[in-house]
């Protein structure tokens, strides 16, 4: 269809062009009655251009625009980028913040969220001393080996035990939380878009009251950062909820910042070492690169600086050898 109409239009243009050629020939000799033909030529050109542009516009109108299946509400508010100290290339975690963050996790988050990939031993030297970590581990009971009668007794925790989970399994967790599963927090910073920024924003972003017109199902709370804005977790961090050992004022955002940094540590406990190793790698490889370049140039210098000269033999005093 399109091809046929194109052909037709080219034929029309061709006819016009022939006409134009004819008229110009004739115009040279005769005073012509067809002086309007350049006008027809312009008209045809303009019409073809208009049709072309129009069809392109129509096509774009039909298929070109991007479709958004998501509303801003479904997308959620994107978290603000905060200048995290530990995110810099040459910076480590602030281990005092980690210690405070662990305190917040234990006193607040751990009533619903597990941290099942972190054993007490990994806290040693990071947030707590050995003795403190042992004491914390001993506060919990774990299954021990079966005794002589085959019964499994309980024993106090050891450094090698993992942090206890608040619920026996996911189903129990759902049943206790209105059907919503509180995710395990061990890798949560890596598991969410926006990482630290997202979790900090989520924890501190509960507004006093949802914006007017928002209708949420029962049991959900409004949080702009959560995709869909309806989150089962209610606001948990309030000013002075915990009392820090080091006397830091426990404002909501301070607690959120500390616990997020702690969760980032739990997701990437190797970060401090990784950055140290990375700097070593960069330093040593740049040194070796420089050295290898220098050695190459040194070894090649006789070849690069040599000059090949052809001295023609002198033949019997005749110039040019002829």
């Amino acid at each position: 269809m399109l091809a046929r109409s194109c052909l037709r239009s080219t034929r029309a243009v061709g006819a016009v062009r022939n006409g134009a050629v004819n008229t110009s020939k004739r115009a040279a000799s005769t005073s012509s009655s067809e002086a309007a033909s350049p006008f027809r030529l312009n008209m045809a050109g303009s019409a073809a251009t208009a049709v072309a542009i129009g069809s392109m516009a129509w096509y774009y109108h039909l298929y070109g625009t991007e479709l958004h299946a998501m509303t801003p509400t479904e997308e959620g508010l994107h978290p603000t980028k905060y200048p995290w100290e530990h995110a810099a290339w040459t910076k480590t975690f602030d281990h005092q913040a980690l210690r405070r963050g662990f305190q917040v996790y234990q006193e607040v988050c751990s009533s619903c969220h597990s941290l099942s990939r972190i054993p007490y031993r990994s806290l040693v030297g990071v947030t707590h001393t050995v003795d403190e970590a042992k004491a914390m581990a001993e506060e919990n009971e774990y299954d021990s080996e079966p005794n002589d009668e085959g019964e499994i007794e309980k024993r106090p925790g050891k450094l090698s035990d993992y942090l206890p989970s608040p619920y026996k399994n996911d189903e129990a967790a759902r049943a206790a939380n209105n059907g919503a599963l509180p995710p395990d927090l061990s890798l949560i910073v890596k598991a969410r878009h926006g990482g630290c920024d997202y979790i900090f924003s989520l924890l501190t972003g509960y507004p006093e009251e949802p914006p007017p017109g928002v209708k949420l199902p029962d049991g959900l709370n409004f949080n702009p950062y959560f995709p869909g804005t309806g989150i089962a977790m209610a606001r948990v961090l309030y000013n002075d909820l915990v009392e820090y050992e080091d006397g830091t004022p426990a404002s909501t955002s301070q607690m959120a910042k500390d616990v997020v940094e702690f969760l980032n540590w739990s997701a990437e406990p190797e970060m401090d070492q990784r950055k140290k190793m990375g700097l070593k790698v960069l330093a040593i490889t740049s040194l070796l690169t420089a050295l290898s370049i220098w050695v190459k140039r040194y070894k090649w210098s006789p070849i690069k600086t040599r000059k090949i000269v052809y001295v023609p033999p002198k033949m019997g005093g005749r110039p040019n050898g002829h």
Partner: peptide
Amino acid sequence: DCVEEFFHLAHCANQCAA
């Protein structure tokens, strides 16, 4: 509802306060 307007305001305020 005012979610979108709320988002824009919250985004601006956060950006400025960060």
